[in-house]
Computed example of a mutant assay.
Amino acid sequence: MKGLDIGSDRVDELAATSAILLYGREERSAVYGTVHPVLQGKGGRATIGAGRPIERKALFECLRELAEHAAAPAEFLPETVLSVSQHAVMWWCRPAMRRVFFECPEIGRRSAVVPHPGLVFRAASNGFSVFALQEACRPTPESKLHEPPYFNTWDLGKICIGSAQVPRRVDVASIAGWESGFFESAFTHPNHGGKRVSHRNGEFAFWKEMLDGKFGEQFPKEVLVPMNLTLAELIAGKQGV
Rank of each mutant, 00 (worst) to 15 (best):
S180N: 07
N126I: 03
P53T: 13
L4T: 15
L59E: 08
V81N: 00
I54A: 07
P105V: 05
S83G: 03
R169Y: 11
R200L: 05
E217A: 15
R56C: 03
C104S: 14
S174H: 01
L224G: 09
V114Y: 05
R52F: 11
K144Y: 01
Q86N: 08
I161Q: 14
A186F: 06
F204C: 07
Q218P: 02
L82C: 02
T230L: 03
V166D: 09
V35L: 11
V197L: 11
P148K: 01
R45W: 08
L63W: 11
R169H: 13
R122A: 03
V241L: 12
L66A: 09
T17R: 15
C160D: 06
G157I: 06
Q218R: 13
F183A: 05
Y23Q: 14
T153Y: 10
P149D: 00
F219M: 02
F183H: 08
M227N: 10
V166M: 11
H192R: 13
C62D: 08
F151G: 07
G49W: 13
E203N: 06
C104M: 10
E68G: 04
E26P: 10
S198L: 11
F101D: 03
T34C: 09
P220C: 09
K208I: 13
Y23C: 04
R122M: 04
A30K: 09
S198V: 10
I6L: 04
R64L: 14
R168V: 06
A67Q: 09
E55N: 12
D212K: 01
W154T: 00
R64A: 14
L156P: 00
V166A: 08
P220N: 10
P105A: 11
H189F: 09
E13L: 10
G237H: 01
W207A: 02
E55C: 07
V225C: 06
V89I: 11
L231R: 00
T17F: 02
G127M: 05
D171R: 04
V31F: 04
V170I: 15
R10V: 00
G194R: 12
M227C: 14
Q86K: 05
H199M: 08
I159R: 00
F128R: 05
R10P: 00
Q40C: 08
V166I: 14
W178H: 12
G51D: 10
S29Q: 07
V241A: 04
K208R: 15
G33N: 09
I175T: 12
A236D: 09
V84R: 06
E106K: 15
S143A: 15
F121P: 04
S18P: 00
E75Q: 13
D12T: 04
H69L: 03
L133V: 04
I6D: 03
E147I: 02
E65P: 03
K195R: 14
D212Y: 01
L82Q: 03
